[in-house]
């Protein structure tokens, strides 16, 4: 069971309070009807499946209820950082273990 830092509660809490919510920074197109079939397909289905740092979303579902973003290393299963929804995609932290 992981420990996750909720950027809204500003506390590091047990994973049991959280739910995974897929890859981060995949914004819904502003006008979906204007997208091509290929663009829409990519939005719906194409994901990174990173080995290593992965930008992903979590929800503090049994807590403050907020969706937020995280960078998690899929090899070590460590969270490198978490940040609020809507914040710009940050660069990778220089060193592991920021959280």
């Amino acid at each position: 069971m992981l420990l996750i830092h909720c950027p809204y509660c500003d506390e590091t809490l047990p994973e049991a309070e959280f739910a995974y919510a897929g890859e981060a920074h995949i914004a819904r197109p502003a006008d979906p009807m204007a997208t091509s079939d290929e663009e829409w397909r990519d939005f719906l289905f194409i994901r990174t499946n990173a080995k290593g740092p992965h930008y992903e979303r979590w929800r503090h579902v049994h807590g403050c209820g907020r969706f937020f973003n995280a960078i998690r290393d899929t090899v070590s299963d460590r969270f490198l950082m978490t940040y609020k929804a809507g914040e710009a995609r940050p660069a990778l932290p220089a060193k592991e273990g920021a959280e």
Partner: peptide, 22 residues
């Protein structure tokens, strides 16, 4: 409850889990 209750000081409250109930 999986939380560290020592860190829930008197006068505070949080949403959390008890067994599988929110």
């Amino acid at each position: 409850c999986p939380r560290d209750l020592d860190r829930l000081e008197p006068g505070r409250g949080v949403r959390t889990l008890f067994d599988s109930a929110t």
